[in-house]
Design a protein around this nucleic acid. Structure first.
Lengths: 97, 97
DNA sequence: ATCCTATATTACAATTCTATAATATAATTT
DNA sequence: AAATTATATTATAGAATTGTAATATAGGAT
């Protein structure tokens, strides 16, 4: 791969890595690999305040890593980026098997 | 996996992800998957100052992600953590194929 | 209409990260 | 020993991230 392209890729990918570079955001993402979850369900499973959960979800949504589906008073989040799913699954294989 | 163990794993893995969550550190790691390189070689390939290169290498070394071998005036760095190599290679497959 | 539940937003202090400049050290060459 | 080369260290200003508290909104239940 040529140097400029490699720089570009590293830039792109490392910014996705920032999303993962936090214990609770990684936890959220790991849960979401199972399929979509609403905010309350994720709050039960992650040790994190409601405010921070909402901020993290919002952040990853802005970055197009997650998508939302609103249903009444609930918000269901899921992973929007195919490569991110693959990556988290690779990580699970490497670190959790 | 039980919740506490999962928290622990996420903590451990996300702190490794912080190393990757920077364009130039990712670049360094990508080059090091090919094998050990000295600082000058990496400086040629990464758009980064000498000082920052040294700081980044030092940081990843402290975090046990890299190891060093000194030979005369040169320092040869390589990836110390087997899982990190696997991870970077997975990332290369997912994002660069 | 009022209350409750689920989620989002705003504000902010504390901490951490980044980039850069300047200087230091240690090995090598002249 | 002086100069050069390769790498490391220190200092620091600015930027970004984190965690928390307080408040807001919007749908559903009473």
């Amino acid at each position: 791969m040529n140097p400029e392209k490699m720089q570009g890729k590293c830039h792109e990918v490392s910014s996705m890595m920032k999303a993962i570079a936090h214990p609770q955001r990684l936890m959220i993402l790991c849960h979401l690999t199972e399929g979509e979850k609403n905010v309350g369900e994720m709050l039960e499973r992650c040790e994190i305040s409601q405010s921070q959960m909402s901020q993290f979800l919002n952040r990853m949504h802005r970055e197009k890593l997650l998508k939302v589906r609103k249903e009444g008073q609930f918000s269901f989040y899921s992973i929007a980026d195919k490569n991110l799913i693959k990556l988290i699954q690779s990580m699970q294989k490497i670190f959790c098997d």
